[in-house]
Design a protein around this nucleic acid. Structure first.
Length: 420
RNA sequence: GGCGCAUUCGUCUAGUGGCCUAGGACACCGCCCUCUCACGGCGGCGGCACGGGUUCGAAUCCCGUAUGCGCCUCCA
């Protein structure tokens, strides 16, 4: 029987990277097993802007490629059903009214346990579990009641969630048993921590999917990196495509200890996946990204710049800084041009007559000029780079000059040499 | 405080009693490549939390201690 799993976020706002991690493990499991991955919004707290947040969450999941099966369901829509079920338990003597609320009776002796998919056997003494409120005095179900009711209604077979839910599990198992409903298998994933060992949060830096997107991370890299937090394929393989992850993901290889989120490693993965993209696909992503970020730069030029940057940057967000000189004027720091005047003059002469104006011809011409001046390439090209790109760091010089065009390149060389 | 979970290089991890003089990756350092940056290549630094057992043999099994985290809400 194919498994049915779910992601059940509460619509408080943006999608947290920790939530993505949990969602991803559910999704990979479902896809690997040929099962279903459901999206359920736990919106019992009606006071917040549920609609907007829900759309936001859906949008983030879609962007990441974590597609869900069937319609999105809402806890709110099941309030009545929850109350009905609670009443039924009252009638059966398994629950009772208490100051307007309904409480479920929990056994006082013995233990409640389950074989955790990730941690093995977990047992909890029943005396430590108190009768829990199922329906609040105002009629709304509590999370610990609504959640198992919905798991039951949705036919959830495997519950993979954060380990902060471990102490909820015995309660939920008892509720399901009271209904006579099937009890799903539970697996508790370790949380993702910040560098200080505390649960990853805002103060550690970016945590929202939006933020990673805005910085120019791509879904493939985020998914690949996150998959490796608490799961591994073997002792060597790290870089994997989504299809490979789906094929290889198994619960047996999921670990139980918490992992610290390492931004540096994510960035490395992002660079690798960016370099793996076919150039035209890279161009699509880059153009889309720059549009999202509000740049109105010429699309043809952006596409033409792809070969110059794909090997060089590890986040799309580096593009404006790295290749912005192609789209806007530059203001070189005069100090960086110091001593470069002879080479600048020589470069100007060469670039005036190079034909055709292509990177390889430009390179030949400039190297010859450097040679005549007795300059090493390193010394010769740096002032030109600064004059033309405005920076000490840039894409390949000759390719950059070609893209810039003869006219602009000469203007910049003139401007750099001019005043002095 | 009670209950629960966790514990291999700075970080992510491989490892399920001998294959481990503990492997890989990121980060860091050095060298090479090189028009800068990056990529790539080579090398280096660096770890089984501690203490008891069990065993011919333990990173691997058991017990204890320590540390960290989580829950103990009519929050989710």
């Amino acid at each position: 029987m194919p498994p049915v799993v779910r992601m059940a976020p509460s619509p408080t706002g943006f999608l947290h990277i920790g939530g993505v991690h949990t969602a991803l493990f559910n999704w990979l499991f479902a896809r690997h097993e040929g099962g279903e991955f459901r999206l359920r919004i736990e919106n019992t707290d009606t006071s917040r802007e549920v609609d907007e947040a829900t759309q936001h969450i859906e949008e983030s999941l879609r962007w990441l490629g974590l597609t869900w099966d069937g319609p999105v369901t809402f806890q709110l829509d099941r309030m009545e059903r929850c109350e009905q079920e609670a009443r039924r338990l009252v009638d059966e003597g398994k629950a009772y009214e208490d100051e307007g609320a309904i409480r479920i009776r929990m056994p006082d002796e013995g233990t409640t346990g389950w074989d955790d998919l990730i941690r093995g056997r977990v047992e909890v003494a029943n005396e430590t579990i108190e009768d829990l409120v199922a329906i609040r005095a105002d009629g709304r179900p509590t999370y610990n009641f609504a959640s198992p009711v919905e798991d039951w209604l949705d036919g959830i077979t495997h519950v993979l969630r954060g380990d902060d839910h471990i102490s909820n599990t015995p309660k939920q198992i008892r509720i399901l048993e009271a209904f006579g409903a099937p009890v799903p298998q539970y697996g508790h994933l370790a949380n993702i921590l910040g560098p200080d060992g505390k649960k990853l949060s805002k103060r550690h830096g970016a945590v929202g999917v939006d933020e990673f997107r805005a910085e120019g991370y791509i879904p493939e890299a985020i998914v690949n990196y996150l998959a490796l937090l608490g799961w591994s394929y073997d002792d060597k393989t790290e870089i994997m495509t989504v299809p490979e992850l789906i094929e290889r993901f198994t619960l047996e290889r999921v670990g139980a200890s918490p992992a610290v989120f390492d931004y540096a490693k994510l960035e490395h993965f992002n660079g690798v996946h960016l370099r793996m993209l076919p150039p035209d696909e890279y161009a699509e992503r880059l153009v889309t990204y720059l549009r999202e970020q509000g740049y109105d730069w010429n699309e043809q030029l952006i596409r033409a710049a792809v070969p110059l940057v794909q090997e060089k940057i590890s986040r799309l967000g580096e593009f404006p800084q790295f290749a912005g000189f192609l789209f806007r004027d530059v203001q070189p720091d005069p100090a960086l041009l110091d001593g470069g005047a002879p080479m600048l003059a020589a470069a100007r002469e060469e670039l005036e007559r190079v034909e055709p104006f292509t990177a390889d011809r430009i390179e030949v011409a400039l190297r010859a000029a450097a040679d005549r001046l007795g300059l090493k390439p390193r010394q010769a090209f740096q002032p030109i780079r600064v004059a033309v790109t405005g920076s000490k760091v840039s894409p390949g010089l000759f390719e950059s000059i070609e893209l810039l065009g003869r006219e602009t390149a000469l203007e910049r060389l003139n401007a750099a040499a001019g005043p002095s």
